[in-house]
Simulated scan of single mutants.
Amino acid sequence: MAELGKNLSRRGAATTQKPETTRAGDVVAAAPHKGRPRTSKRRGSLGNLVVMTLAGGLVATMALPAYAFTPGTNETQFGTTASTELSQAAAQNVTVDAQAASVTVARDGFTATTEEELAAASAAAAAAVEAAAAEARRQSAAAAMTTYAASYSGPSVSDFLANPAYPNYDLGSVFSVASQYQGVPYVYGGATPAGFDCSGFVMYVYAQFGISLPHSSTGQGAAGTRISEADARPGDLVIMDGHDGFYAGNGNILHAPYEGASVRIQPIWTSDYYIVRLGI
């Protein structure tokens, strides 16, 4: 028995042999004992535990989608709403008013102004503006003529034609008489020293020599003979489009220009004119 006890003590000492340590405190594995190793058992238990853990997680993961698509009784998180239950039961009802059957549908109509209509309207508006301006000018001219007639009491064109102030006609005398009226204001329709327009001025001067002319620049141009500018002399007529006056020499004209201006001499400002001489 004593021998048996010693043997057991030796085996226990070998089994419980502590690991050696170095001076730095590192653990050095203990020498393996001669008995059956226990490490394989521990490793087997640990592997089984890992496999069981992974299997449980996999089963839980696969069960989540099924649980999500099949809600339980938790109405707060997964419960169906009243509108969802009605949709699933196909319980919708639509009420249509009885008058809907008698409603007629028609295409909306519209109108548009054509380019021709717009152009016509614009032309009509421009014509209206021009007519209003012409009427204003007529009224202004009428008022001026009233003042003009009241302010002049001397001989008229008809008086001179009946009794010419200068029976002997020559261009130098004509220009001399015309030059006396510089400063007379322009008056539309005027034909006396109270106020002249362009053709009224020419008509009044030539009437004093017994020569009758129409109150029109075109008519006065047609009453004479065209000559070249090189042959022109003061007293000849300068005829333009809608305007005329006396040739004053050196490319100048003596005329009644426009409203707001007076009879004056100035250079001819255009090349669109011709010279006419009367009495030949």
Rank of each mutant, 00 (worst) to 15 (best):
A60M: 10
Y166T: 10
A136G: 08
R138H: 07
T113R: 06
A101W: 04
L254E: 11
Y258N: 08
G109F: 02
A223H: 05
I227Q: 10
G279M: 12
A98K: 01
G25H: 01
N168V: 15
A101P: 00
A144K: 05
T114Y: 05
A150R: 10
A60G: 08
A91N: 08
A134Y: 01
T70M: 12
M240R: 15
I268W: 15
A106S: 12
A91F: 09
D108G: 15
S271K: 12
D241Q: 12
A133C: 01
H255D: 14
P19I: 00
S40H: 02
A124W: 06
A100H: 09
M1I: 04
F160S: 08
A101Q: 06
V202C: 03
N168C: 01
A123N: 10
A66G: 12
S176L: 11
Q77F: 15
R38H: 08
A63N: 13
V94M: 10
I211L: 10
A143I: 08
Q182N: 03
D241W: 06
A191K: 12
L86V: 13
L46K: 07
K18G: 04
R107D: 02
A14G: 13
A142Q: 14
G245W: 07
V105L: 15
A223T: 00
V177D: 07
T95S: 09
T146M: 04
T61V: 09
Y186A: 04
R138P: 01
C198F: 03
E75D: 15
Q92R: 07
Y67P: 00
F78A: 09
T114K: 00
A150G: 11
Q180I: 03
E229R: 08
L237I: 07
I253G: 01
S102E: 10
E3V: 00
K34N: 11
D272T: 13
Y152Q: 10
P267L: 04
S217R: 04
R23P: 14
N48T: 07
A133H: 09
G249M: 06
P167F: 01
Q266D: 14
A136C: 05
V50C: 02
A126G: 06
T80N: 14
P164G: 03
G189H: 03
R226K: 12
A232Y: 13
T81N: 11
R264H: 00
A126I: 08
A123Y: 00
R23G: 15
Y258M: 07
G35V: 13
M62Q: 06
Q77A: 14
P164C: 05
V28T: 09
A132F: 06
A141Y: 04
